[in-house]
Write a protein that binds this DNA or RNA. Structure first.
Lengths: 347, 347
DNA sequence: TCTTAACATGGAACCGGTTCCAATTACTGT
DNA sequence: ACAGTAATTGGAACCGGTTCCATGTTAAGA
């Protein structure tokens, strides 16, 4: 139908304008053109004018790759993160993005779908795509991999995972678990259930730390641990709902549930609703993460500052890049209990 | 506390190994090393062995930037998309990522927070970060900007927006709106409300196309348009809930609501629940987008294949890159009505 | 055994910038 | 007017790869 746009094809074959073309046109040396491009003050106003005119006339655009090669920096940072399904990853990504937007750095993302890919990225990344620095979200490297990062000389920051040799930004998950449990205890609960991931095959260990916090808070006030109140399952809402139903059908059901993630907590709320159990008067529910949706349901939860963790990680990476910091170093993101309306004293 | 890891600093200053170092060590020419690196068959097994050993011993990693400069390709594609808050953007991003993961291309993302930034990216992008191709999600370029993309020679594909000069992957929003409305009509509804964004200041025009589809479906069966049944508001769930309450409190409330997005539809479901209006027996609700959550609530909705649109856009971009296609070209993503359980004949 | 083609290899030139050094020009003070 | 210093400027060398061409080697064919 439409005529093939010949001009486009022609343009592609035109050799691109280089800095030497500009220099020739402006009758100056390439060095001078380069100085103009980089706002070097030692260029006279007259010459600068000439060069700018030539640039304009030739519609010249400097080639960033060539620049990168000669200055040795790519002005790019990479981020490795799990497949973008969970809101928590996205929230952290947004934090990273927020800091980068006001910098001159670009962000290239590597999504990890499966463990094999994780290893591939971890061990082979710098070969294919040179970045000035690297952020890794929620994916703990093993010793060998950590060593690779150190050795490769690429500044690296872990967000939401931990390694003694690297810089990292983590939440104190033990403390978070303790915080949530203590809050329920303070409200007067003693029958407190815990709903979590499978601990034995942890995707990453945060869940088991939260569990430790839970156990320790119980011990503090000498509430005996009741294995019936401990449930493991998939990380999605659906399976949490099923588990919660089992839990609430016990002969002696808990008066409060601590869910290791908000997604699960929402599943519990639904189970309660279906079983006509009133929240919070008959059952208290506390979540973990403070995802956006949690606000919407007025879920009491532990806010682990997801967005801020992205911000902090990126700033830490900048500190590494400018030699204001040296690995290893470790920062904790602040934890905050958001007491909303799914928790109350027991009946 | 911890001793400063001196080794790290030392490493950084070590000049990196180059292809010439390898050539010297293996006692071959640089060309040969390059051929080994690129699996060029015209290298004898013996020489290849020698080179590989040298690479191993020197722990050599080729510099991708240098490679990019000489081959003239960056193996990177860029994506411009709105701030990552809406699930629909993320879903499309995942589609893009899915295709890229099995390719040799990297993805660099540019998030647009505000209109000024959009313009900045649109007009200045190729200067700072050379990419081989560009994907643009949901952000329609004006004529000037479209021209810039054509002129710059960077293959560009629009996803979820449209321009006569560029390649694009779009959903037929008029048809989608018609589809949803027709479905309600077929169920027997005649009092059908429409809940949408503010149409007069459209972030992008899809919403108003859906509205056109809605109107046209009504006309087909000569149902007069009732302005009371038309409501505009913010794009979030909360405001949809408020609007829905107004709508359902009318003297003659609608028997069905078509929401221009799933987020809104969920808000409507909540409003109905609060007002003790049974869905679907007393009220039918249909959404748009088929976000993940919608499945969870069994929401009837129009599936506009968000993930697939990312996939298709990326494939189209590859076609451009390999000259298998020429702009402009246009593809429609398939639309599918997901009849789930929030719709039924009117009472 | 000699010719010829196929194969393997070294290395200069190139990609398009930056940077540094030497050379030129402009300006200062006496 | 002139030395001495500061401000500009040109351009070669460099960043680290790829590619092409000329050359040397080997194997096949007559």
């Amino acid at each position: 139908m439409e005529p093939v746009p010949i001009t486009v094809t022609k343009m592609k074959d035109t050799p691109p304008t280089t800095i030497r073309d500009v220099a020739r046109k402006a009758k100056v040396g390439v060095g001078t053109v380069s100085r103009v491009l980089n706002d070097n003050p030692s260029v006279s106003e007259k010459t600068r004018e000439k060069v700018l005119t030539a640039i304009e006339e030739l519609d010249y655009t400097p080639n960033p790759i060539a620049r990168q090669l000669s200055v040795g920096r790519t002005l790019t940072i990479g981020i490795i993160l799990p497949y973008l399904t969970l809101p928590s990853y996205i929230e952290r990504l947004r934090g990273v993005q927020h800091v980068l937007a006001s910098s001159e750095y670009d962000l290239v993302i590597f999504c990890v779908d499966d463990p094999a890919q994780k290893n591939a990225y971890f061990q082979d990344l710098s070969r294919k795509s040179r970045v000035d620095g690297m952020l890794i979200v929620s994916l703990p490297p093993d010793d060998f991999q950590a060593d690779y990062f150190t050795r490769s000389g690429i500044p690296t920051v872990l967000i939401d995972s931990d390694h003694s040799k690297l810089c990292c930004v983590v939440a104190d998950d033990i403390e978070g678990g303790r915080m949530a449990t203590r809050y329920l205890i303070e409200l007067g609960h003693r029958k407190i259930a815990y709903l979590t991931d499978y601990l034995e095959t942890p995707f990453h260990p945060a869940m088991s730390y939260r569990y430790q916090g839970y156990r320790s808070a119980l011990e503090e006030v000498e509430i005996p641990y009741n294995p019936d109140y401990f449930m493991q399952g998939e990380r999605d809402r659906e399976s949490a709902r099923a588990l919660a139903k089992k839990l609430l059908s016990l002969d002696d059901p808990p008066s409060a549930v601590f869910a290791a993630s908000d997604a699960r907590a929402l599943g519990i709320l639904e189970a309660a609703q279906e079983m006509k159990i009133k929240v919070p008067s008959e059952l208290s529910v506390i979540g973990y993460d403070a995802i956006r949706e949690s606000a919407y349901y007025n879920l009491t939860t532990i806010d682990q500052s997801l967005f801020d963790s992205g911000v902090m990680g990126t700033q830490m990476l900048f500190d590494l890049l400018t030699n204001r910091a040296q690995p290893p170093c470790k920062k904790h993101v602040p934890l905050k209990l958001l007491a909303r309306s799914t928790t109350a004293p027991p009946p």
